[in-house]
Amino acid sequence: MSEPTDDTETHTPLLFGRVLDGQGGARPIAWEEAQNWQPAAPGEVLWVHLCRNRPGVQQWLENELHVPEPTAELLTSDQTRPRAFVEGETLVGTLRGINFNPGAEPEDMISMQLWCDGNRLVTLRRHPLQTPREIVAMLDRGIGPPDAGATITLLAELLITRMSQAIVDMNQVLDDLEDDDPDEHAEEMLKRISTIRRNCLGLKRHMAPQHEALEQISRDAPYWFEDHDRREIAESIARLRRYLDDIDISKESAVVLQDELRARSLASSEHATYMLTIVAGIFLPLSFLTGLLGINVGGMPGMDDPDAFWGVVALCGFLFIALIVVFRRLRWL
């Protein structure tokens, strides 16, 4: 079966729906059937992926799933800081993933809310997110997660895995910048490094609370979240912690490279200023001498001597050579 596409009918919030059969497969389900769904066989789990900003989502959560109003508001709001908590026998959480939509930057992360009671899993998003599509494609091929806990675990794992690609890309850019010629592309390199630093800060800002949210799930998830799911979440937490360390390393590498480029640029400017100062120091006495001999007053020596000009030229040459010798002995040159 081909990968499903988003529901383009704006009157329904359903993007896709599946009923997991407990064996890694699933069957599609329409919004009308999903609203009042009840398991027809042991092990069946309903998973609906909704667009949270379409009409009727909050009302359905409150009326059909009996979600408390504050929780329903949280699931449909734009308060997207990663978090997770348990409410009775249900798990509520907000996770974030890398935005791979055209024109987006890595730090422009997309939030996904989830609600699950073990039999029904509801995920909600506002902007397109690729991770749920990957999992539903696996279910359609019969190799997907068997239950709600495994689905949540796989969602978290794939969200984190996609983060690693953004970190690898940033490190590759840093490696390329280190091999580039700073004398030719210094300004462009500084701009790219500044972008990488902003990306690192954005990823760190969102990934750190996601680390806490996953720990909350691993520690406090309800009984239907099985032990192997907790172990998988623990592995995802460890991987996320490594990625946070990698982000810190990338940020520090960007700072070091940026400082080096700025130091080289400053040294080049200082060298140019120094050379101009040396040139001014050499020609200032010569300018004074020629200015003194160029005043238009009576009594200037050599005014009637045709060889006086060459005498002044020789005097300036001698003074020039003398200044060069003095500057070299002072180690200014």
Rank of each mutant, 00 (worst) to 15 (best):
Q130K: 12
D147M: 01
V19S: 07
Y274N: 15
D108M: 09
E270N: 10
V168L: 12
R241K: 14
A148Y: 02
T273S: 14
K204H: 11
W60T: 15
A272T: 10
R205G: 09
S218W: 00
A166N: 06
S194R: 14
L284A: 14
N296W: 10
V67F: 02
R329L: 13
D181P: 05
H127C: 04
S268I: 12
E226I: 08
I324Q: 03
I29F: 03
D78P: 00
I135H: 00
C316N: 07
V312L: 14
D246H: 13
L159I: 13
L292E: 07
P301Y: 03
G93L: 15
R141W: 00
I167Y: 01
W47T: 12
P182I: 15
C116F: 04
A254P: 05
E105Y: 04
Q58W: 04
P285T: 05
L75T: 07
D6R: 14
D175F: 02
R27A: 10
N63G: 06
W224N: 07
E226W: 00
N36G: 06
W115V: 11
S269M: 15
A221T: 11
L65A: 07
R331F: 08
L319K: 06
T151R: 01
G118M: 09
L214C: 08
H66M: 09
A166G: 04
G97E: 07
F309N: 02
E87C: 08
G56S: 05
I160Q: 02
L284C: 03
P146S: 08
E157M: 05
A30S: 13
H127I: 11
Q38P: 08
G298I: 10
S194I: 11
L121N: 02
V168S: 03
E105G: 06
S287P: 09
S77C: 10
A137N: 05
K204S: 15
D21M: 03
A150I: 03
F327C: 07
Q59L: 08
V48F: 01
V86L: 06
G202C: 08
E178D: 11
